[in-house]
């Protein structure tokens, strides 16, 4: 039964699309094809060559536009409206939901945690990713070193959560420590008291952020490494001949030249960290002061059934991410210009 619906889904969707394209092509009766360059100037004749050339793009875009409209565009508008309504989305309550978010003590902890994630996760991942990109370039076993760091990108946050719960496992002092972190520290540091990393309010947020860094450093490394390899070698060679040290070359030449790539990585990391959900859900479920925005929204939605506040939280997330969306658009427009 399951297999049947699986086959149906992956065969029928492409099949229906192919049939759809050919039938609409017949219906609009498109014969003559006028090829237009991807980024070229508008020819001004599109309208004159008849209905086919006018209709065809829209028919090809229709499936995409339907999905995007129903599942992304309409919901975004709807959520913004809901954020000004009450728990059951019946009456408008003005800014009450937003005022609650910025005054409630629990919510302020959530916002504090997100700022901590934003700062430490981004800095840690970027720093380690850059270190790996620079160092791995200097050894023969570069592919192996990169693969080792990149592996966590392939697994789910849930699996990573299990892995790290096991790493942070705590047993009271005197018992055998089966968690790697406590075992190593008690073995190395005389008199070290094992800690409940995930339950201790002083360490639990940092412990979670470590998991995030472990997962995403590979991403930063791969992109930064590609960027660094694009730096022309003659510039570096010239600096070396002039007697610049490896550190000077790194700070004065490599970093400035890699700045655009670093900016891309940093913004991507920031967008992702703002939406972080899975790690916290699996490892602490937001208890003991570890809640973040996405987890709080989930609770407002399913535990407290307060759709107004849940929507308001989502809107705050969107506003925080909006600058990155604008940057993406700007970057696209610039690349358009530079390609003519």
């Amino acid at each position: 039964m399951k297999l049947l619906s699986l086959l149906l889904a992956i065969v029928s969707v492409p099949a229906v699309l192919v049939v759809y394209i050919y039938i609409t092509e017949k219906l609009i009766g498109g014969r003559s094809v006028r090829l237009l360059p991807a980024a070229g100037p508008r020819s001004g004749r599109a309208g004159k060559s008849g209905g086919a050339a006018f209709l065809r793009p829209w028919l090809w875009l229709l499936p995409s536009l339907l999905l995007l409209g129903v599942f992304l565009l309409y919901p975004v508008v709807n959520t913004i409206i809901l954020s000004f309504k009450n728990a059951r989305s019946i009456e408008f309550v003005g800014l009450a939901n937003f005022i609650h978010i910025f005054t409630d003590r629990g919510m302020l902890i959530v916002l504090r945690n997100n700022v901590a994630w934003l700062v430490f996760f981004t800095a840690g991942t970027l720093g380690l990713g850059l270190l790996m990109a620079v160092l791995s370039d200097k050894v023969r076993w570069e592919p192996v070193a990169k693969a080792a760091v990149f592996i966590p990108m392939a697994i789910s946050f849930v699996a990573a959560g299990v892995i790290w719960r096991f790493m942070f496992e705590f047993r009271p002092a005197g018992e055998v420590q089966i968690g790697t972190v406590n075992a190593v520290l008690t073995a190395l540091i005389p008199g070290f008291q094992p800690r409940a990393w995930l339950f201790d309010k002083q360490t639990n947020n940092i412990a979670l952020i470590v998991v995030g860094i472990w997962m995403w450093t590979g991403f930063a490394m791969v992109i930064l490494s590609a960027g660094l390899k694009g730096i022309p070698t003659d510039v570096i060679e010239a600096a070396r001949i002039d007697g610049a040290s490896a550190w000077q070359i790194f700070v004065r030449i490599i970093l400035p030249l890699a700045a655009p790539t670093i900016a891309v990585v940093a913004t991507t990391l920031m967008v992702n960290v703002l939406k972080i959900f899975d790690i916290v859900y699996v490892m602490t479920n937001g208890s003991l002061g570890t809640e973040v925005i996405a987890n709080r929204m989930y609770k407002e939605l399913f535990n407290y059934r307060h759709f107004g506040r849940a929507s308001a939280i989502a809107v705050i997330l969107l506003v925080a991410i909006a600058p990155v969306m604008i940057m993406n658009i700007k970057r696209f427009k610039e690349s358009r210009k530079s390609h003519g």
């Binding site: 959520t79 989502a314 969107l318 969306m325 993406n328 696209f332």
Partner: peptide
């Protein structure tokens, strides 16, 4: 392009 970065949290309730 703008939709690439939209957090799916924005869509959960209506969808």
């Amino acid at each position: 392009i703008a939709l690439i970065a939209v957090p799916i949290q924005m869509t959960l309730i209506p969808v």
